[in-house]
Structure formats: C-alpha cells, structure tokens
Amino acid sequence: MARARTAPAAAAPVEVELPEGAPTSLSTRRGELTLPVFVPDATRAVVRGVPTDRLADSGVRALLVSTAHLALQPGASVIGALGGAHRFMGWPGPMISDSGGFQAFSLLASGNGLAEVNDAGLNYRFSPKQKFRQLTPRSCIETQLRVGADIVYCLDYCTSPSAPAAEQERSVELTLRWAAECREVFDRMVADRPAEQRPLLFAVVQGGRDEQRRARCADALVDIGFDGYGFGGYPIVDGKLVDEVRLVAELLPAGTPLHGLGIGTPENLVESWQAGYGIFDCTLPTRNARRGVLYTALDVDAIGRGRPYKIARLTDERWVREKGPIDPGCDCPMCTTLPGGAVAHMFRIEDTLAGTLASMHNLRFYTRLTEALHRLGTA
C-alpha cells in the first residue's frame, strides 16, 4: 500500500530582532517617512527615465539628489531661482541631498586629475575641459539649502578601505573639522526659521577599516550633535557589509536615524535594516532595469533566511512568448497591464518605454520590500 504524501510544513513566521529603539518613522518638514524607506537616486534632479509624477505609482516616498552635480549643472542659483529642487522637478515629498564628498572621492580615485583635497575642502570637475569647482563646508551647506533639501549632509572626506593609515587618519580629521563647520553654518542659516520648517542635518562616519578610528569619528560626531548619521559606500570591505554596518550602528546612540549610503542589493538592504538602518539609496534598481534585469517574486517568508526574490532577464529568449505578467505578485503598471512578451519586445526594439516600465517595476519591488520589513518590524 502506497504511503500518503505529507504536504511540506509551512515556514514559521520570521522572528525579527531589531536593535533597541530602532526608529520606525522619521519626521521631516515635508511629511513623515515610514522606515525603512528606499530612496531612489535623482542625481541630477531626475530619476532617469521615470516621469516624476509616476514615482508615487511605484510607492516612492522620498528622493536623493547630488549636490556636486546640481552645483555644476544647472547650478544651485538656477534651481533656487526656479523655486528649489522640489518645484524644479515637480516633487512634493521629502528630498535628501548628499554632500558631494562621495562624488569627489570617485573622481579622486579615477587618477585623472579631476579632484583634489585640501584642508579647506574639495576641488572637483567632471571633465578635464572644465574648471575646478570648490566644495567647502560653507558652500556645501549653502548649496543644499538653496536646492531646498529636507535632509542635508555635512561635507566629508571619503577614502578607500585600502588607503594607507595616514590617509584614513586625515579623512577622520577633515571629516570632523568640516562637520563642525557645517553645523555652525547650518545653524546660522536656519536660525530664523520656525523649527518645523528647518531641514534635518546628517553627518557621515568615516575611519576606513580601523575600528578604533571609526569609533573615534562616531563619538566626535555625536558630541557635535546631528539629526542622523550615514555610513556605507567604499568604507565597506567586500564580503563584510553586515559586520561593518552593525559596528557603526552600535557606535551611535539608540534610536538615531541611520542611512545606509549606497547600500542597494535587496539582501544587503535587509541585513542593514536588521542592524538598525532605516534609509537606503542606490542606483542599482533603475540601472539594472534599463538593462532588462528585473527583481521579481518577492517572498516575505524568505526574508532573513535567504534571497527573498528572483531575477528576470528580459533579454532571455524565454520571455518572447510569455503571455502572463513578468511578476504576477507585483502591482506596478507594467505587471498589471502588459504580458511579459510585450515588454521583452520593447527591449528588443530598444524602445525607451521599456526602461521606464522596468524602472517603475524595480522601484516598486524595493518599496514593497521596505513595506514588508516595516510590517515585520512593527508586528
């Protein structure tokens, strides 16, 4: 007699243990942000390929713009004259601006003579044909306030984790000096504004891979006093993201808003959220989307156990005759209106609509992921 087959047992609910006091929301002058939140990079005051009025369809609640890029083109004075970045791009929600320090680091790392650092600040240009622009603590804050950001960042000196100890030490010294100057300039410039109309001021923790140096940087920044702190990008050594971000989170006061700068894969986002981070930004979702690489099949039950999603590559032959949606579980405009074969066709003929629809889908995947994390964290 054949034995009856037993259905596999359902996975037990994920038990989430967040750091004590990890915030689940952040108040800004343009509204409350539920945490965790994924913030698309609108580097040049545009999320590439996606109309601003369609971002809300993907669940986007905040954007990040680049101080260094906007200061160069169209210029902070132009954006200010046009009503600020919110009016400029038609975005009503909270906006974060970076300091420009990471862009300067990227230019320094290129070795093409596009950037230089001195005690006063950073000099940079994006092409050898351009003149250098100076980025100082004062100009950094002035530019961001003129742009109209709701979360403003102090100027910092970012270095590679492989940089020598002397350079890492200089990074901390300049980051702390500039942070104190930024704090002073910021407080003076917003002194006459009502408290509810003031932006928030964040600082970036530096120190390379040396834990003691990083701890000294974090302690000194806390002494100066900021509304939140960022960490991420190049200071993270490959394969050690979880250890690195958790260490920094443990160095900062409980309940402090933390921004995982440039932390972008879904797995890394989840791991960093479990360490206490609540804000994330990355170009990865939209960049991959333009190449036809989509995140699909979000599995909330797999969060914390493994990769909670699948990858769909629309350039693969299998999608050419797909009658159903690319991701049946997704509520984005692409998945609710079009068969997968139609979107694959758009990519094959290189129609720009393909990148727009795919970008909206990937952004919606990220916002669905952060929404699920919020539910898990507040259950």
Score class of each variant (00 low, 15 high):
residue 202 F to D: 10
residue 332 C to K: 02
residue 169 E to F: 02
residue 170 R to C: 06
residue 191 A to N: 03
residue 333 P to V: 08
residue 211 E to K: 15
residue 149 A to P: 12
residue 247 L to R: 11
residue 228 G to E: 15
residue 222 V to P: 10
residue 21 G to S: 11
residue 164 P to V: 10
residue 29 R to K: 12
residue 92 P to M: 09
residue 196 E to P: 01
residue 76 A to M: 06
residue 99 S to F: 03
residue 268 N to F: 03
residue 61 R to H: 13
residue 2 A to N: 15
residue 93 G to N: 05
residue 179 A to Y: 09
residue 231 F to W: 09
residue 88 F to S: 07
residue 146 R to N: 09
residue 241 L to Y: 04
residue 330 C to S: 06
residue 157 Y to N: 00
residue 240 K to T: 15
residue 332 C to E: 06
residue 51 P to G: 03
residue 170 R to N: 13
residue 152 V to R: 09
residue 59 G to I: 12
residue 167 E to D: 14
residue 243 D to P: 13
residue 282 C to D: 00
residue 219 D to S: 14
residue 264 G to L: 01
residue 296 T to D: 04
residue 7 A to Y: 07
residue 372 A to P: 12
residue 74 P to Q: 05
residue 42 A to P: 02
residue 316 D to L: 06
residue 45 A to C: 05
residue 133 R to I: 11
residue 28 T to M: 10
residue 41 D to Y: 02
residue 20 E to S: 14
residue 70 L to F: 05
residue 11 A to C: 09
residue 359 S to V: 00
residue 144 Q to L: 11
residue 68 A to Y: 01
residue 313 R to Y: 10
residue 286 T to R: 03
residue 367 T to N: 07
residue 102 F to T: 01
residue 259 H to M: 13
residue 341 G to E: 02
residue 3 R to L: 07
residue 146 R to S: 13
residue 222 V to Q: 08
residue 218 A to Y: 14
residue 123 N to F: 07
residue 281 D to A: 08
residue 252 L to H: 06
residue 218 A to W: 14
residue 315 T to R: 08
residue 266 P to H: 06
residue 115 A to Q: 01
residue 313 R to A: 00
residue 5 R to C: 08
residue 287 R to S: 07
residue 13 P to V: 14
residue 245 V to E: 03
residue 279 I to P: 02
residue 184 E to T: 12
residue 72 L to Q: 03
residue 318 R to C: 06
residue 4 A to T: 13
residue 3 R to N: 00
residue 98 D to I: 00
residue 219 D to T: 14
residue 185 V to I: 12
residue 273 W to N: 00
residue 107 L to S: 01
residue 330 C to Y: 04
residue 142 E to T: 15
residue 249 A to K: 06
residue 194 P to C: 11
residue 108 L to Y: 00
residue 109 A to P: 02
residue 144 Q to A: 12
residue 23 P to M: 07
residue 105 F to K: 02
residue 59 G to R: 10
residue 274 Q to K: 15
residue 333 P to S: 01
residue 178 W to R: 01
residue 266 P to A: 01
residue 87 R to L: 06
residue 191 A to I: 08
residue 81 A to D: 13
residue 11 A to T: 12
residue 236 I to A: 08
residue 287 R to L: 08
residue 149 A to M: 12
residue 315 T to I: 08
residue 144 Q to D: 13
residue 183 R to V: 09
residue 214 R to K: 14
residue 69 H to T: 10
residue 233 G to A: 15
residue 68 A to W: 01
residue 333 P to H: 06
residue 293 V to N: 01
residue 155 L to G: 11
residue 27 S to F: 00
residue 30 R to P: 02
residue 54 R to M: 12
residue 90 G to L: 15
residue 161 P to W: 09
residue 23 P to F: 04
residue 165 A to W: 04
residue 208 G to T: 04
residue 81 A to P: 00
residue 183 R to L: 09
residue 257 P to C: 13
residue 275 A to S: 06
residue 38 F to E: 00
residue 370 T to K: 06
residue 361 H to S: 00
residue 58 S to V: 04
residue 250 E to C: 06
residue 261 L to A: 12
